[in-house]
Simulated assay, not measured.
Amino acid sequence: MNPGLAKALVNGLLIGMAVVALFPLLWMLSVSFMAPGEAGALPPPLLPKHPSWANYRELFLRAGMGRYLLNSLLVAGAITALSLVFNLMAGYAFAKLRFAGRERLFQALLGGLVIPAQVAMLPLFLLLKYMGLVNSYAGVVAPALASVFGIFLVRQYARSIPDELLEAARIDGAGEWRIFVQIVLPLLKPIIVTLAIFSFLAAWNDFMWPLIVLTGQEHYTLPIGLASLAREHAQDSELMMAGSVVTVLPVLLLFLSLQRYYLQGLLLGSVKG
């Protein structure tokens, strides 16, 4: 086959797949600017006849979407920051520090990956209830402070750091905390960004656990708020699409802005680990 023709076919196939993947998102954005009931016409219109911000004004002025947005930012930001601290320290310890039972403890942690998260929800809820953390942001944040996947990801990447570099720092009199902050963390930058994106996306999109823990509407995050709104406006597709755009857009922009570091962290971790 002609190389030019083969290249054109491959590029055409990729463009077609991209269009198929992006079409639902683009149509969701288009519907969010339509007038009430316009999206229900047959055949469904691709573009609004008279684009309007009315659905977004309805969301933020009457439906309380602004409050849900701030709640999600608070919860996802806290989970991301705190989980980075715990996962980075634990992953580095399993990779470079020697202590009794290190390998067996790490193997036991890996075993937790095969246990469905839903299995632990009931005992975890009862524990948080006993601690008085139900219907609080702390009840949502605390279980996500460390994850087996995050520890594993950091450990695999941290193993690529030369032991000679750390030993040289110890010989020069640097303490373990100083070595971790000034030497290890700068070398872990790609995996830090990758783990931060993973943590933020998981916290932002989480629906089940906040639904279980948060009983007061003032504490609802965006996914729960959108589900609650859907029960009241089940037939208002345009308003629901506007709510979906508000929910999806922040994480989409975050991923697109940091995708270079995200892919670099995944690739380097897989090669060096």
Rank of each mutant, 00 (worst) to 15 (best):
E218T: 10
A227W: 02
E218C: 02
S237P: 00
E232L: 14
H219F: 12
P223E: 06
S228C: 09
L239W: 04
A234L: 15
A234G: 10
I224Y: 09
H219M: 12
H233P: 00
I212L: 15
G243I: 01
E232D: 11
M241T: 01
L239R: 02
V213Q: 13
M240I: 13
E232I: 06
P223C: 06
D236Q: 03
E218Y: 04
A234Y: 12
L229C: 01
T215S: 07
Q235W: 07
E218D: 13
V245S: 02
R231L: 12
H233E: 04
A230M: 07
L229W: 02
H219G: 14
L214Y: 09
I224F: 08
H219D: 05
G243R: 02
G216H: 07
G225W: 06
L214K: 12
H219W: 06
D236G: 00
L239A: 04
L229H: 03
T221H: 08
E238H: 05
E232S: 15
L222K: 12
M241Q: 08
L226D: 10
G216I: 08
G225D: 08
Y220R: 09
G216S: 15
I224N: 07
I212V: 15
E238S: 05
I212E: 12
G225H: 08
H233L: 01
T215H: 08
L226R: 12
Q235I: 01
M240G: 13
L226T: 07
G216E: 12
M241A: 12
E232A: 14
I212N: 14
E218H: 11
V245P: 00
G225C: 04
P223M: 05
L214N: 11
A230G: 03
A230D: 05
M240P: 02
Q217A: 09
H219K: 15
L239T: 03
L239C: 05
T221C: 11
A227D: 02
A227H: 04
I212T: 13
S228M: 15
I212C: 08
V213K: 10
L211R: 15
L226K: 14
P223Y: 02
L222W: 03
E218L: 11
Q235M: 09
H219C: 07
H233C: 00
S237W: 06
Y220C: 02
Y220G: 01
L239S: 04
E238M: 09
A227V: 07
L211C: 06
M240Y: 09
R231M: 11
E232W: 09
T221N: 10
M241L: 07
E232V: 10
G243P: 04
A234V: 14
S244I: 00
S228I: 06
D236I: 00
